[in-house]
Design a protein around this nucleic acid. Structure first.
Lengths: 128, 128
DNA sequence: AATAAACCCTAAAGTAACTACAGGGTCAAG
DNA sequence: CTTGACCCTGTAGTTACTTTAGGGTTTATT
């Protein structure tokens, strides 16, 4: 399977695949006589794994950690859970900020609807 | 208020503040005789607003648009409301994304409660 | 008073996680 | 035999910062 097929299969760009190879997230594939990369089914699965991790917001470093954990068959799931728990904490902080932000904007919108933007302290409202 | 105090107050780095000034997100502060930046209470509030926007994932461009509302004091409320409504839509999209992420992570976490990684369901699930 | 620690300055380079581009080779189809 | 769709390497650009280099200034301590 060539890089274009792999990209189509995984719904990501060819450049992203080459990039993942460069930074060591994806193992170097075999090369055909002409120098083209040829991928195996296993590498496809691994790429899908990486993309799925990225989609739920894990960083490359975190993915690398997961990959490392995977090789330590004796390790406990606790490590994986620890990583995910930390990720959840970060996520909740973002959610809280987002909700706070929504409130601020709604408040500002209400001010504007009263038609007195000229003297309503928009900035002050925004910053509350 | 000097830059160090401001940074401490806003829980961000001194470098970030100088960076925001450089890219025009934060207005240029007065300078003391020795060249040190001196900030007002208003600038502190602005910085806090910017940081909150950033934490929820708004881009600098989006923040700049919000900030521009300040200068449009004479603008019609409709115009401003339009802008805010668009931002609300964006916020809701991001909120949904984060909630989706949270669900994925929770689902994964529950699958991996104990045992060794040999049969860690998180990995299995992610590799599907 | 001298010196060290803590603070401030600018400018430039590095980082994450890609994306886009420049300047090419390869290969099946028309 | 050339056009177009692929593939290659390598470098530069993007966003939003962070780090480093190489200095001045202020404040606390000796």
């Amino acid at each position: 399977m060539r890089i274009g097929e792999l990209a189509a299969e995984c719904d990501c760009s060819v450049e992203t695949i080459r990039y993942y190879e460069k930074v060591g997230l994806l193992s170097k594939p075999e090369r055909a006589e002409n120098g083209y990369r040829t991928y195996t089914e296993n590498q496809l699965k691994w790429l899908q794994f990486i993309l799925r991790c990225r989609r739920i917001g894990l960083t490359q470093d975190e993915i690398r950690q997961l990959a490392d954990i995977e090789t330590k068959v004796s390790a406990k799931c606790d490590e994986v859970n620890e990583l995910l728990t930390q990720h959840l904490v970060n996520l909740h902080r973002k959610l809280d900020d987002l909700k706070q932000m929504e409130k601020s904007i709604l408040r500002l919108k209400n001010k504007c609807e009263k038609g007195t933007l000229g003297d309503c302290l928009v900035i002050v409202e925004l910053m509350k």
